[in-house]
């Protein structure tokens, strides 16, 4: 049984969009997985201007307030085939397109299941982790999890085509 707290920093240039984040998923591998349980699970998003994380979780918020976007007790990871695992019932998060984005996950206990995820070396300290649910500081890493965000943008047809319509009805 173990608790965990991790921040992963996604850069604005990687997202390259402004909009509402409506879903987040991790790319699981080496499954299948059945009833991997994580108790008091929480997932937060937070804007930050930092390009690299520090060893202090709170400092990384850079004065912004983390927003709880998903929670479960327990989070149950069950996946018959490798692939994307979406976190449950994500609340919409308005991403500003300018700041970087902290993705933070934590849970208080688990049932000892190991779940593996595709990852990559991002080349800088963009991951901060600790084995303590309420840990203030952690260990920095360049090994980041591969993830998928769904961003929704609201587009409205502009009046350029309206001009043509007006012309036809004069």
């Amino acid at each position: 049984m173990s608790s965990y707290r991790v921040q992963e920093l996604v850069l604005a240039e990687e997202i390259d969009l402004v909009g509402t984040i409506s879903d987040i998923a991790f790319d699981l591998v080496d499954g299948p997985y059945y009833d991997a349980l994580f108790y008091y699970f929480e997932l937060y998003f937070c804007h930050t201007s930092l390009d690299e994380l520090t060893e202090n979780f709170s400092d990384n918020y850079d004065g912004n307030t983390p927003i709880l976007v998903s929670e479960a007790d327990p989070l149950n990871i069950t996946l018959a085939e490798d692939g994307w695992f979406s976190f449950p019932d994500p609340a919409p998060f308005e991403y500003d397109g300018e700041n970087n984005l902290i993705v933070e996950l934590r849970w208080m206990e688990d049932n000892g299941s190991d779940v593996y995820n595709w990852g990559f070396d991002c080349g800088s300290y963009r991951v901060l982790a600790t084995k303590f649910y309420d840990g203030d500081t952690g260990f920095l890493s360049t090994k980041m999890n591969r993830m998928r965000l769904i961003l929704e943008t609201d587009t409205t047809l502009q009046p350029a085509s309206l001009g043509k319509v007006r012309g036809r009805y004069r």
Binding site: G19, G112, S113, G119, M147, D154, T155
Partner: peptide, 23 residues
């Protein structure tokens, strides 16, 4: 009209047990 875009962060370089690793 709401348009949904999929944004993938990172590659499938390596498999590792963080963050979902029991102990």
């Amino acid at each position: 009209t709401v348009v949904a875009d999929e944004v993938i962060i990172g590659d499938q370089e390596m498999s590792f047990d963080s963050p979902f690793c029991g102990s």
